[in-house]
Design a protein around this nucleic acid. Structure first.
Length: 454
DNA sequence: GAGAATGAAAA
DNA sequence: TTTTCATTCTC
């Protein structure tokens, strides 16, 4: 379709009205710099070569809605083939990539598309003055529409592609960059929270159902991560927050004890040694899941040195940071134990530890940096020590709990508050840690934290 | 037809 | 607040 007023060609029905409208003469629309639309020639080509909408039974005179800014952006994006078929062909995944790209687009770039959408709406109104959006709220079945479950797709890769796109890489450049990324990229690994094993939980069958109250809390948690959080975004042109606001986890569980059940994950698939030896393991990507990103730390990790802590990297809901550090190690928090908290001797004997979490390895690296870690007397640091930078200073012993991790045999200590999570493995007794009961005390846990965390 | 994304609009 | 539907195409 050439520029100028929209006039439907004889072979164009209202049902095919979806081309971005041309700018009005008195209100020129600036072009997106990052993702400019094609020339009118290619627009015509794409319009005429567009495959018929598959199987969509629409009345002959059906008038589609005017496209919104994102839909226009997505359409232009797909048409332009910024992401080649060698990189991604699945349109669901492409939608993710384009969504991430959209979120990280500079505001002025997004405004270009919002203006185009306004333009489209104006043209639509002129073409179809009688049109009124009439959604069918009573779909077949009458039940609630199926809520999307965002599966553990390879979000890291999507985010990386989006990052490259926002940086201006397209086509072959993007192909090369992604090809390079794919060489070292480890697909998402899903592990789960493992509630500390108590005497009660040890006696409960694994298949025992999670209590209903817990389920609803988890549903609430999940829904806050994707659909609902997006839906609750205020209408308007305000830029959506890159990371959804986390649901305060403490509010999801009835008791403080249950909040404390957010314990150390069992690293079923990794050991610290494996992480160190695997150059592809990226601590930057270590996060719980999208619902918790904003409350979890990000870790800089150099596989050739000791783990470093995020000295200058804070997580905040308003962080403008490109949301690319999505979890590579994905921890499924869909299971939360239901038993009351009571530290006990782990029923999982050290001898039954089949090696998923080896004993504390002998430390062979350079001396530990003087960053507040406990002095390990020449022995290894804890298998994994994760500290939140922003641990509130008002942690009290009542918020503190300890347990012995059944898998690793390590003594663990942690606390959970509304928005902050801190947990740490504290070497109890490196000579005899498997047999020792949990006896970490509050002060030793606090002392193990880096000074800047307090 | 579902699924991916975001946003506008109706119920 | 919830739901639909704009786009696109593979599964």
């Amino acid at each position: 379709m050439s520029s100028g007023a929209i006039a439907f060609a004889p072979n164009v029905t209202p049902g095919t009205f979806n081309d971005p409208p041309p700018p009005l003469a008195d209100e020129p629309i600036s072009e997106s710099l990052l993702f400019p639309t094609e020339t009118s020639e290619s627009t015509v080509a794409s319009s005429s070569s567009r495959k018929p909408l598959h199987g969509r039974k629409k009345p002959e005179n059906y008038i589609p809605r005017p496209p919104n800014a994102f839909i226009l952006f997505r359409s232009a994006f797909i048409r332009s083939r910024h992401v080649s078929t060698g990189v991604e062909t699945n349109h669901s995944t492409l939608s993710k990539i384009i969504g991430l790209t959209w979120q990280n687009l500079p505001e002025e770039e997004r405004q270009v598309w919002h203006r185009k959408a306004k333009q489209a709406e104006a043209e639509h109104r002129i073409k179809f003055p009688q049109y009124a959006f009439k959604p069918l709220h009573s779909r077949k079945g009458g039940g609630k529409r199926k809520v999307r479950e965002v599966g553990p797709k390879d979000q890291v890769r999507c985010a990386k592609i989006a990052e490259f796109l926002v940086q201006g890489l397209k086509g072959k450049e993007l192909d090369a960059a992604i090809e390079e990324f794919d060489k070292s990229h480890v697909p998402t690994v899903v592990t789960r929270f493992e509630a500390p094993i108590t005497e009660q939980s040890f006696n409960r069958p694994v298949s025992a159902p999670i209590p209903e109250g817990k389920k609803s809390a988890l549903r609430k948690l999940r829904s806050s991560s994707s659909v609902s959080s997006r839906r609750s975004t205020p209408v308007g042109n305000s830029r959506p927050s890159p990371a959804p606001s986390p649901q305060p986890l403490a509010s999801l569980f009835e008791t403080e004890q249950e909040n404390l059940l957010f314990s150390l994950p069992s690293l079923d698939h990794f050991s610290f040694d494996q992480m160190k030896q695997d150059p592809t393991f990226d601590f930057n990507s270590f996060a719980f899941d999208s619902t918790m990103q904003a409350s979890m730390p990000s870790f800089a990790y150099d596989p050739h040195s000791q783990p470093t802590l995020p000295l200058d990297h804070t997580f905040s809901n308003n962080s403008p940071q490109l949301n690319v550090d999505l979890p590579q190690l994905h921890i499924d928090s869909s299971y939360v134990g239901s038993d009351s908290w009571s530290p006990c001797h782990s029923p999982c004997s050290p001898s039954t530890n089949t090696g998923s979490m080896p004993p504390t390895p002998a430390y062979s690296g350079s001396p530990l940096p003087d960053d507040g870690y406990a002095n390990y007397h020449g022995e290894a640091p804890p298998a994994y020590t994760l500290h939140h930078k922003s641990i509130p200073s008002n942690i009290t012993p009542s918020q503190f709990s300890t347990y012995q991790d059944a898998t690793s045999g390590y003594n663990c200590a942690g606390q959970y508050t509304d928005l902050q999570c801190a947990y740490s493995t504290v070497p109890h007794n490196s000579h005899n840690q498997h047999s020792a009961p949990t006896d970490i005390d509050y002060s030793s846990f606090m002392a193990s934290l880096p000074p800047y965390a307090l």
